[in-house]
Computed example of a mutant assay.
Amino acid sequence: MLPPASLKAQKGRGAVSNLQGRHEVHARSSFDDGWGAPDDAVGSSDTAAWKTQVSEEMARSILSRNSSPDLPFGVSLNPYRGCEHGCIYCFARPTHSYLGLSPGFDFESRIVAKVNAPELLRRELARSAYVPEPIALGVNTDAYQPCERERQLTRRVLEVLHECNHPVGLITKSSLIERDLDLLAPMAARRLASVAITLTTLGPAISRTLEPRAAAPARRLRTIRTLTDAGIPVGVSIAPIIPFVTEPEIERLLEAVRDAGAINAHYVVLRLPWEVNPLFRQWLEAHFPERAQRVMNRVREMRGGKDYDSSFGSRMHGEGVWADLIHQRFDKAMRRLGMHGRGGRFRQLDCTQFRRPLAVPAPVPTSRDRNAGQLDLFQSG
């Protein structure tokens, strides 16, 4: 991990370094030899160095399936890779390593848009073997992150689902979801749509460093009220619960979301898989140096002495005395407020109304297909 002296927070970014991905062959580190400033591997006061870039990808498939007992859904769709919201705790950060990019600054500044997502979805729903089940939209990275305003991939995906009467559950931190009320409200009236809003803290100061480009906490509460008033069932994900940072707010968070109209809630304790671990610890040293060791000690106490344990059944909530205490506090507050637990509304979405799309676009070759075609051309001789 980088030494504390090298850690420098960037305005508008969650990460404080461009940490190398675990698949890189050569290790690199920044070093100040006295002849000039260290390079941007550690950080730079020049925020232009990490201006957001959105590149386009022609995806080969669009639906991802999982069999995890910890999740209430089996199928998900993510229109974007990377997320400009910059949440330092995001479990999807390590996926940027597969692209040869950093889970640090790169994850939140180099976004990949799957521009053929709506067409791929339409073709998938048209398959004779397709069996409908609720699709979770925007699970890995937020489907309503800032670039969605221009790209509108999420809206076009919703238009396909609306046309086919296909059930969908969305999770987001963005107020941009209000743009699509014209699609979501009628779908919700037919038990075809539900929404979950992630809320981590009520404190704007903490939120600005923890999730710098997501909607402010007060704005998310207004979004819950707007969706609720439109007849859309809204649940809340209190995630992640970070000991000594957001953990003291559990009861106040639940009360605030209940008053805003949320009907159910669940929580996830801080998870530190792969590169999220060093990135989060750098963030702690940069923003909460006086309590960094206490936070990590408590995290390890909930993970059997390790920074993270990925075991099914315990990875979301942890184990041990502190994990039990968080569970009891959450459960007691939920009962007092008359709220329900996770996943109920998602599982109640109706799949019986599904109808296959009438128009199906012809397949568009991906870049890999086009390269394969060029190779065949040369081999044919």
Rank of each mutant, 00 (worst) to 15 (best):
P132F: 03
M1H: 06
K11H: 13
L101E: 13
P132E: 02
V321I: 12
Q53P: 02
L153R: 05
A372H: 09
R271L: 12
G34E: 14
K11P: 06
S175Q: 09
H166F: 01
T209V: 15
I88N: 01
K332A: 14
A136K: 14
Q353H: 11
F330H: 06
F378Y: 13
Y98P: 02
H85P: 07
P361T: 13
V16T: 15
A362N: 10
E163C: 04
Q53L: 14
T246S: 11
G104S: 02
S128L: 08
N140W: 06
V245W: 00
N277G: 03
M339H: 10
T200F: 06
E133N: 12
V234L: 13
Q152D: 01
F288P: 03
Q20C: 03
D350E: 15
E285N: 12
K114A: 09
L253C: 12
A286L: 08
R329T: 04
G261A: 09
I135Y: 07
L121M: 07
R191E: 10
R220L: 00
L199S: 08
R368F: 15
H317Q: 14
P278F: 09
G34K: 11
I62G: 00
P248S: 13
G74F: 06
A136M: 15
R65M: 12
Q379D: 11
V54A: 00
P365M: 09
A239R: 09
V195Q: 10
E249H: 06
V195E: 11
R335F: 10
E178P: 03
T200K: 04
V131H: 07
S237G: 14
V54N: 00
L375I: 15
K114S: 03
